[in-house]
Design a protein around this nucleic acid. Structure first.
Lengths: 303, 303
DNA sequence: GTTCCGCATGAATCGATAG
DNA sequence: ACTATCGATTCATGCGGAA
C-alpha cells in the first residue's frame, strides 16, 4: 500500500490504524470534525467524554507524523454539556496535544447563525463551535489573500474623500500612523478577514447529514493550501471535506470507520466528478502528489 | 468593616485581600475583566502568562466564598499570543478553578465587531473574547426573559447589522435553510438570545478607556440578577460594571488596585447618580441589601 | 435637527535591532 | 542564545465640528 492508494480515495477503517500506511510529511492540511463525545453513538460506538482524550491521542500522533512541517491541522470540535457543566475534554486535549509536540497556534470561532433550536432553564442555544488550529512548526503555509472579503461600509462613506487630503496629512501629521498609509486604502475594496467565521449550519434536508457546511472546509482549504496540495479528513463522514477539496482543485484523503458513510461519501464524490468535469480538467491531475508544484493558482507568499 | 462598607462603594486594594472583609454568600453576580497577562503593565504591573494562574487562584477562592450559592461568576478573558502560540493560561485556569470547587457552566462568546487592526503573516485579527460562566451550584438564578430580543432586532442583528463582508459570505448560503427558518418567527415578538454576543469594543474616544462596552455587563446583570441584587467587579477599572449595575437598579461593589482608576470610577459613578436621578428614585434605595426583595421588576422564574 | 466628514484610537503581534 | 525595545502593519467606530 503506497501513497497512491490514499490520494483521492475514501478509505474504510480507524484512522489511527489506516494512517500508518501513509508516509511521513505527506499531507498539507488536515481538516476534520471528529465525532463529539457521546454523540453519534450508533455510528461510532459512542466515546464517553471522560475517555475522549485517551481515545483521540493515538490518532493525533499519526496526524502529526503524516502532516508536512508546513502543514496545518484544523480541528472542529465543541465540548458537550455533561451534568450541567461544559466538559473539559477539549481543553484537556489541547494541553495533551501540546505535550505531543503540536503547536496551538490559534482558535477560530465558527459562529453558527442558525443553531439547533431548543430552550433550557439554565442555558441558551449554543451558537458557536471551536476551530482549533494546530501546527507542526511556526513556519507554516498561509495564503491570506485567498480568503479576503469586501471592505465594510465605512470605506465607501469615508475613504473617497480621504484621498484628497492624504498628501498633506502625510507631511503634517505623524501621530496616528494610519494617516501616513491612507494612499494604500484608495481604491481598496477587499480586506483581510478575522478569526470569526459566520456561516449557517447545513440544513439536514438532504439525505446525508453533514456536520458542517461545505463553505467551512473550503475556507480553510483556500487559506492553508494551494492547488494540488493534499487535504486529509480522517473522519470524513459524508464526504464534505473531500468535495470541498475537489471543487478547489486539491487532492483529498478520506477515512471513516463506518461503511455506510464510506458509501455516501464515495457516491457524493463520484457525483461531483460528473457535475464538475470542467473544473476537474482545469485543475489538473488529481492522482499524484507530484503535481503540487505545477498547477499553482494562488500567487501568495507563505510565512 | 461590615458589609455596608462595601455596598455601592469603590474600594482600593487587591481584591483577594479586600474581599476577606465581605461576608460569605453575599454577592449575586461577579462580572469582571481582569488585566490580561502582560497587559496594562503601567497600571497593574503586568502579570506574566506563566504566573497567571497562580496569581489569580487566591482571588477566585475569595470570589467563591462571597458568591451566593445561586450566584454566577462571569469572567471576561482572552489568552494572548506568546511565541506564536496561544498561551494556555486560560484553559489551565478553568481546570484549576474546577478543582477549587467551581462549576464551568458555559462559555459565552463576545464577537468584537471592531478589533485591534494589524496584519501578520501567520494569523488574522482577533475578533472574539471569552465570557466564561462559573457557578457555585447547579441551581443558579437565571432570568432569561430579561434579555429576550425583539424579532425586529433579530432581523437587524443577523441581516442588516452584519457587515457588508458577512452579507457577501451569506449569499453563498441563501436558500440553504437560513431563509426558510424566518417563517418560524412570524407572529412572535420576542425570542431568546444565544451564547454569542455581538458588540463593538469601546474606543477611547471618551476620556475613560473601558475594556468593554457597558452593554456587556448590562446583558449579564439582567440575565443573572434582579433589582436590588449585589453585583461585584473585583477589577472595576474605570467603573463600567458599577455604572451598569446602577442603571439597572442593582447594588454594586467595586474594587481596584489602582488609585487612579478608583478616582475615575468614583467620578463616573457620581456623575451617573446626577444624570439619572429619576431612574435612581424609581429603582429604590441603593444603600442596603435588604431592599433586594422589594423593588423587583423582573418577573422571571429562576432555575 | 440631521447628515456628513475629519480624525484619533484600540486587552495586538511580528520581525528586526539592540544590549 | 536570550531578552527588551521599537517600528510597521491594519480596520471599525464614536465623537465633535461643519454643512
Amino acid at each position: 500500500m503506497d501513497r497512491f492508494s490514499f490520494i483521492n480515495n475514501i478509505l474504510l477503517g480507524d484512522c489511527g490504524e489506516v494512517l500508518k500506511g501513509l508516509p511521513d510529511n505527506s499531507v498539507d492540511l488536515i481538516f476534520t470534525s471528529p465525532p463529539y463525545a457521546d454523540q453519534r453513538q450508533k455510528t461510532y460506538g459512542g466515546v464517553s467524554p471522560d475517555a475522549y482524550v485517551s481515545w483521540f491521542l493515538p490518532k493525533t500522533e499519526q496526524f502529526l507524523r503524516v502532516l508536512k512541517p508546513t502543514g496545518t491541522f484544523i480541528l472542529n470540535i465543541k465540548e458537550r454539556v455533561v451534568n450541567g457543566e461544559r466538559h473539559t475534554y477539549v481543553i484537556e486535549l489541547i494541553l495533551a496535544m501540546r505535550s505531543q509536540g503540536w503547536l496551538w497556534t490559534e482558535e477560530f470561532m465558527w459562529h453558527k447563525k442558525n443553531s439547533y433550536p431548543g430552550k433550557w432553564p439554565n442555558r441558551f442555544r449554543d451558537n458557536w463551535e471551536r476551530l482549533i488550529q494546530f501546527n507542526k512548526s511556526k513556519s507554516f503555509n498561509m495564503y491570506q489573500e485567498a480568503v479576503m472579503v469586501p471592505v465594510g461600509n465605512w470605506a465607501k462613506d469615508r475613504l473617497a474623500k480621504l484621498s484628497q487630503t492624504d498628501q498633506t496629512r502625510d507631511e503634517s501629521k505623524v501621530g496616528s500612523g494610519f494617516g501616513k498609509n491612507v494612499s494604500n486604502w484608495v481604491g481598496r475594496d477587499m480586506v483581510y478577514p478575522n478569526n470569526v467565521i459566520h456561516l449557517a449550519t447545513e440544513c439536514a434536508n438532504k439525505n446525508h447529514s453533514a456536520a458542517f457546511p461545505i463553505e467551512l472546509p473550503k475556507w480553510f482549504i483556500k487559506l492553508f493550501t494551494k492547488q494540488g496540495d493534499v487535504v486529509l479528513d480522517p473522519f470524513i463522514g459524508s464526504g464534505t471535506t473531500a468535495l470541498a477539496a475537489m471543487q478547489l482543485g486539491r487532492n483529498y484523503v478520506g477515512i471513516d470507520l463506518n461503511p455506510e458513510y464510506i458509501d455516501i461519501a464515495r457516491d457524493r464524490v463520484a457525483a461531483t466528478q460528473i457535475a464538475l468535469p470542467i473544473v476537474a480538467e482545469e485543475n489538473g491531475d488529481y492522482q499524484a502528489i507530484s503535481t503540487s508544484d505545477s498547477s499553482r493558482e494562488d500567487k501568495h507568499g507563505s510565512t
